[in-house]
Design a protein around this nucleic acid. Structure first.
Lengths: 347, 347
DNA sequence: ATGAAAGCGCTAACAG
DNA sequence: CTGTTAGCGCTTTCAT
């Protein structure tokens, strides 16, 4: 481990000078010649700054804590983590990850992150629910990703669910379909409500009537499949907007059993686009990708801007303006996510 | 932030005594009375040790670096991360996560982890491939998870692929099926070869003939589906062992199109058991879960034992002995993983 | 424009 | 048994 002292000795200057130079604070304080020599020697000796020492002195660790409730049990956590990591990396931070599924005790894990002096926290429960935020987090810089707290005390980055439903339905309508079904989710969640509203609004915008017989909300397994079969037989949809990949599978199963071809007899737009599913379904299924990566990215960016206001000055936070692509767009479409500021009004 | 100094002042002892007590090194060195007071005051003041300070002094950060090539693009990363985190947590470590998918530069990310002084690295590429290990990692304590390096320079935790194929096939054979197909993967990978060997061995053990017509290796999409259709029509299997969830879906699609019922006309054993898929398929599909969590757990345990030999003394590293459960076992079955020591022989 | 010196919070060797 | 002391690598006044 080479230290600043080593560099100072080799260069014949003092550690303070080395520190100034290597931190880019040498403008008009250190002769350019000297600065160059310092940089050269640092490279030569493979100098790596010691984060612990710096952190001890500055009370800044350049670490972000990522607290998730479901890393292992949801396949989407990875996207959020990667986005967060990328934003962190751009700003010189690293991500320390902690999860509450499994046997781990969340408070204890959060304690560990605090001992290590993380500069702030990202909190994510996946799937856009309303979460209880652990008290211990509340007094630190905190941004929520893919979730909101009931009182809107913290900034949150969430998908624009209304836009997802509206977009999916509009794509089907523009393709000339008139009996567009929605296979949703019985569990009450932000996503279900928002997507259903979007679906209805899009029908209205397209001049299509809303027909309750074309809407079915299901959970999982046999009951779900039977319910979707009934939808097929009674309402005869020519297009289906599916709440997620699982629901899309029921639609596929029904179509296969009836000899219907997806993309010809019935068009499907699904939400999620999970890798496992998309590698299997890709040629037939039109998908809308949830903005997991983007949520992670923006959440981390927002957090960093709270920690260090200079860093975030002038950032354009995400909003919803992307145009609606056609049904046969080659790539899955990414819906924008939205930043909810503290105490902003929630529908 | 309360420090040891605060506690020392309040208790009327010196910081060294406080340090001894709070680190549990006070056996016969500090009067129990005093030790109790110190503990009491520490709790009262909500003392949290400062990891940076300790790390500076001891050259130990109590952090592990988790380097993954595909956090976002595979749904299984989460299980490995969680397992690693749990083992880390038990030993008082935290996990700093870094991934190479997306725009991040791996070497730079690894550099960040090194600046922060991680005590060792976990490296995972997912899906049990042979990996190139970045040079920068080679000089640090390193354990591979779900992957091996070509020369066997590093300890690695991998699934027992042979056992997976053998187990899956045996379960089908014990259920009385005689025309057991294998729907595998065309890509040459450790998993494919091991599972196929396991399949053949299990057939032999069960006294069933090996019939090449019952084996088909496919990739994705239309070609894959057509190939599986041919398998169904020409070889008429009564049981199918599927390489993974995607292949299982093709089997489902074929069965649905032919009016066959899974679990009655044809039995399926799949590998993976990914949450998205299992919540959709669960009633019909018998699954073998890959030991992602376990691999993470054991990899981290092994790494910690390398960092601190005392910690790992007497650990029983994983091996393959679990009994083979029946086809209708209520829970997905977890195949054990295996620790490959440095330079152990690889088939 | 550069250096000397203090100190962040903690551990460990040594004295007593 | 307990305290004193030095120092981990770095940043940051304050002198020069």
């Amino acid at each position: 481990m080479t230290t600043m002292k080593d560099i100072a000795l080799r260069t014949g200057v003092s550690v303070s000078t080395v520190s100034l130079v290597l931190n880019g604070r040498d403008r008009g304080r250190v002769k350019p010649q000297i600065a160059d020599r310092v940089h050269a020697v640092a490279r030569e000796l493979d100098y790596l700054p010691n984060a612990a020492a710096r952190s001890l002195r500055t009370n800044r660790s350049q670490m972000l804590g990522f607290v998730s409730m479901e890393v292992a049990t949801t396949p989407y956590a990875g996207g959020i983590i990667l986005g967060a990591q990328e934003a962190a990396s751009e700003a010189g931070y690293v991500l320390a990850t902690v999860s509450a599924d499994g046997a781990v005790d969340l408070d204890q894990e959060i304690g560990s992150l605090m001992r290590h002096g993380v500069d702030g926290f990202l909190f994510s429960t996946m799937s856009n629910r309303v979460s209880d935020i652990p008290d211990s987090l509340a007094e630190h810089p905190l941004v929520l990703a893919d979730t909101v707290d009931a009182q809107g005390r913290f900034p949150a980055i969430v998908p624009d669910e209304f836009r997802i439903g509206h977009d999916a339905t509009t794509r089907l309508a523009r393709a000339g379909l008139t009996r567009i079904a929605y296979v949703g989710c019985t569990a009450p969640m932000v996503a279900q409500e928002g997507r259903l509203r979007g679906y209805r609004q899009a029908l209205e915008d397209a001049g299509l009537p809303y027909d309750a017989a074309l809407v079915c909300d299901v959970l999982y397994n046999d009951g779900a499949l039977a319910r979707v079969e009934r939808l097929f037989d009674e309402a005869r949809p020519d297009g289906v907007f599916c709440f997620n990949d699982s629901r899309a599978w029921y639609v596929y199963e029904c179509a296969a059993r009836r000899g219907l071809t997806i993309g010809k007899d019935v068009s499907v737009v699904g939400v999620d686009n999970h890798p496992v599913v998309s590698e299997t379904f890709s040629p037939q299924l039109t998908t809308i990708a949830l903005p997991h990566y983007e949520m992670g990215y923006w959440a981390a960016s927002k957090l960093i801007s709270m920690i260090d206001p200079d860093a975030g000055a002038g950032t354009q936070w995400p909003h919803t303006t992307a145009p609606i692509p056609p049904l046969d767009a080659p790539e899955p479409v990414r819906i924008h996510c939205t930043l909810l500021e503290r105490n902003s009004v929630r529908a």
